[in-house]
Design a protein around this nucleic acid. Structure first.
Lengths: 166, 166
DNA sequence: TGATATTGCTCAGTATGCTGACTATCAGTA
DNA sequence: TACTGATAGTCAGCATACTGAGCAATATCA
């Protein structure tokens, strides 16, 4: 007997291209490579993660580590090492908080401010390069869809995005 | 004097939400968390990376490590550890190649085949969950745009995707 | 054939990310 | 105020990813 309709055999593993998870990994992989290449060509040694942390510290002087982690959706155990490296490079400082002796207040240094200013063009060109296969409209649409999917999944990772609380 | 038009001050660092790189990282972060949760709930201990490698070994029995890496866009130095863990879990085997004494031929074990079969529903539900904020049409569009951006950036990472060569 | 280049794999070192555990501290309440 | 629970930060351990180096084997070409 011959089936009228093809059946999903047990061998029909989905193509990678059909897996959002695989596409997510791959796009992120390219994004990091582009960022490092652009920033490296400009003569700086800063990772995407370090850049985001530093920019957020600059925008919110004196914030503590947990708040910083929430603003950029990093795990609190990851942020420790990231800040270690920013401090070690002289771009940020860790100070004891006066209000809460458990917390550390983070501030950017002049050197950090300078680095951030000089690095901005590379960061922006990196963002363009990672979308270079798409039209402007498609790039916008990709970002919109990513934002929407991320918003719906925010609580599913250990390190969700958190707003500043007053 | 008051400016008629707001000027981009040096403080106008782009919002994270405007950075494709940040969105890529965040979406990937959620995708991994969802995958691990779904697969873990089903009683399995397999990462997205290990799953993709195992499925690709099954589909291409006897392939060597470099070819495997190319098919799923992993770095060759990363794949070593991934295979170590698959072998250690009894899901795959590493054999000396007869044609090229530098190469290792990879094959899936019966246990690996069983695991792959039983794990498939969790993997598929994970893919649905990570798109749960989007309509079916939006999910398709997101995947299309990711594929397009990835294709254009393929050569920009150290571990580009490579087709099987005969 | 012999020198050279390339390739397959591994390793050491660094940087995210995560799990889970732990300390110190703070906050709320009985 | 003493107890309890929550919170800030760190640490150890594991799993990707990558850089760069190195070894063994193969390919290429003068």
């Amino acid at each position: 007997m011959i089936r009228a309709v093809p059946v999903q055999s047990e061998n029909s593993v989905k193509e990678n291209n059909e897996m959002p998870g695989h596409l997510a990994r791959r796009f992120q992989q390219i994004a990091v490579a582009v960022f490092l290449a652009e920033v490296g060509d400009a003569g700086f040694d800063l990772t995407p993660v370090q850049y985001a942390a530093l920019a957020t510290i600059k925008a919110n002087p004196g914030l503590d580590q947990v708040t910083l982690a929430g603003l950029i959706a990093y795990d609190r155990t990851t942020i420790t090492g990231v800040i270690d490296r920013l401090v070690q490079k002289g771009l940020a400082e860790r100070r004891a908080s006066s209000r809460d002796r458990r917390a550390r207040e983070l501030v950017i240094t002049d050197e950090g401010r300078r680095t951030l200013r000089k690095i901005t063009p590379s960061v922006e060109s990196a963002q363009r390069i990672m979308l270079r296969g798409l039209s402007a409209k498609e790039g916008e649409e990709l970002m919109r869809l990513l934002r929407k999917a991320i918003a719906a999944g925010n609580e599913l990772s250990r390190a969700p995005l958190r707003d500043m609380q007053a």
